[in-house]
Simulated scan of single mutants.
Amino acid sequence: MPTPLARRVYDACHLTGQFRLRSGQVSDEYFDKYLFEGRPELLREVAEAMVALLPECDVLAGMEMGGIPLATVMSQLTGLPTVFVRKHAKDYGTAKVAEGGPVDGRRVVLVEDVVTTGGALLASCGPLRSMGAEVETVVCAIDREQGGRENLAAEGLRLRSALTRRDLEADLAA
């Protein structure tokens, strides 16, 4: 039996067709996170579920682009500062990979929307750690359960997800 939140997220963002994922994999289903992130009441509910998963930390790091609205709402709910992590540093302006406050010596939790293989998170974790951030935990809205948890664990990152693919599809099996 799906939770009420899982049902609402599934109804809002589950698409079928043929989709190429960031990982390069092709899938016949897609969880379009922008369809729930664009709905204020649902975005807040997902962010509240993610806040419940936070370890002790000093900074939330919203991953470009889908992690940014989640991290922003989580920051509002917790009072924790937020940085916004780019896929690549800009070659102009501040040329930073993480925009916002400092991360050096701080316990930083990465905030992501959907995790498939964890590739984007792994690519961003190195630069954050080289800036002095203590990064051990990722909190995401949806874990697609396609190897991300294991790939992140291999790099010393613990994944905590508000929802999993299994949660979202629970009623389909019934």
Rank of each mutant, 00 (worst) to 15 (best):
A153R: 09
D32K: 00
C57E: 12
H88K: 15
D91S: 11
G100N: 11
A98T: 01
T164A: 10
K87E: 09
F19I: 05
E150S: 06
K87F: 07
R7H: 12
L53Y: 06
T16R: 14
V83D: 03
A71V: 01
G101K: 08
I142C: 08
C140Y: 04
L122G: 05
S75Q: 07
G147I: 03
E29A: 08
G24L: 11
V114K: 00
E145W: 08
V73L: 10
V103N: 03
V115E: 12
G93W: 09
D11K: 14
L35H: 10
A6Q: 09
P4Y: 01
V26S: 13
N151E: 13
A154Q: 15
D28N: 15
T164M: 11
D58I: 00
S23P: 12
A6Y: 08
Y10F: 15
P2E: 15
M63R: 01
A98Y: 09
A52D: 15
M1F: 10
Y92K: 03
Q25E: 15
R158D: 15
R107H: 09
G66T: 05
E169T: 11
D11H: 14
M1H: 12
A153S: 12
A89G: 13
C125Q: 14
Y34S: 07
E112L: 06
Y10S: 10
A98Q: 06
P40Q: 04
P69S: 04
H14A: 15
G148D: 04
E169N: 08
L122Q: 02
K96V: 04
E37S: 13
K96N: 13
P127H: 00
